[in-house]
Design a protein around this nucleic acid. Sequence first.
DNA 1: GTCTATATCTTGATAGAC
DNA 2: GTCTATCAAGATATAGAC
Lengths: 196, 196
Amino acid sequence: MAADQEHVSRVEKRRRTEAAISDAARTQFAEVGFERTTIRSVASAAGVDPALVMQYFGSKDGLFAAVARQQKPHRRLLDATREGTPQAALDDLFEDLEDPVSRDALLALMRNCLTHEQAATVLRDDVMRHVHEAVASRIATPDAELRAALLGATLVGLSIGRYMLRIPGLAEASREDVERLLLPVLALLVEPAPQA
Amino acid sequence: MAADQEHVSRVEKRRRTEAAISDAARTQFAEVGFERTTIRSVASAAGVDPALVMQYFGSKDGLFAAVARQQKPHRRLLDATREGTPQAALDDLFEDLEDPVSRDALLALMRNCLTHEQAATVLRDDVMRHVHEAVASRIATPDAELRAALLGATLVGLSIGRYMLRIPGLAEASREDVERLLLPVLALLVEPAPQA
DNA sequence: GTCTATATCTTGATAGAC
DNA sequence: GTCTATCAAGATATAGAC
């Protein structure tokens, strides 16, 4: 039926417009941060009118919240054993950071977590909570919480250093080299009693 | 001589006014970031007129550059042996972070390094270069650069997680506990061949 | 030397034409 | 539903009075 088809295509068109806006916003929030991303610049990149962005997302904060929600779940880390935790953590992180969409969704959080409370809250209480629970639950020592937090902080430092600050020596290193050096380091954090 | 005395006290007064502005700017850049720090808010906190801030520092970027220059040198790290490098790095970092002045000078860099190119440049090419050179020069393997960069990234992750993101478990932990868990981790990064 | 007043720009958000 | 036009707020920076 023509009317039905037109209805579907209208909904579909709206969905695509929303996606175009969301895509442009994700990229800009990730690359230049929340403050320097403007409704106008997002609309321009998405090829729509600035007023449409407000219509769909309500406010700039609403737009950011929509991007912040697009995090990829860290499945390997949640299912790993204690011994497998370091490899699972790096696999999840690299998978995130090597796909442009999930990478920008994560970078949008990291880029703004020091200057935007909303980003800090989602990163700390949502994304990092996964790491924290997965690690802490597998260690039976009183300092399990600290170990988990240090592992999370190390991964944050790796992401920021490699992909954002672009520290010389780390930004150009291969994933294999990074894993080779970092796996034993993370293993030390999840192994409470490494007897000889 | 009265004229001389008046001259000295005028210079001294100017110096104190500059210091008051710089102190207020350092605190605000560290706590709320570059964008949300305004010339007006700095002047208000320092008890001076906003135009005076422009007069002394030229621009908001000039004011930030003055704060960014106030970094404390990391003497222990530069003088340490390879074995002493992890302890020296943590000693320098904690000494920095436990004194309000040097802490805010460093946090002003870290808080803004993801959204302000000037902050990123100073942090990467000035502050972290110390760590990099100290570590890389003491390791004789081809991956020395990467090891040094990973050590720097870990310290950045620690600082951000503990003092800025305030990750639960890490923010409240004692310095002793953090050192106990992190020293062997950093040692692993500077020890290329840990044979049994 | 210090400060008042303001020029100039940019932003998020809104109102209303079509 | 979409866009033009505009508002109100807040910023840096400057010009000139005192």
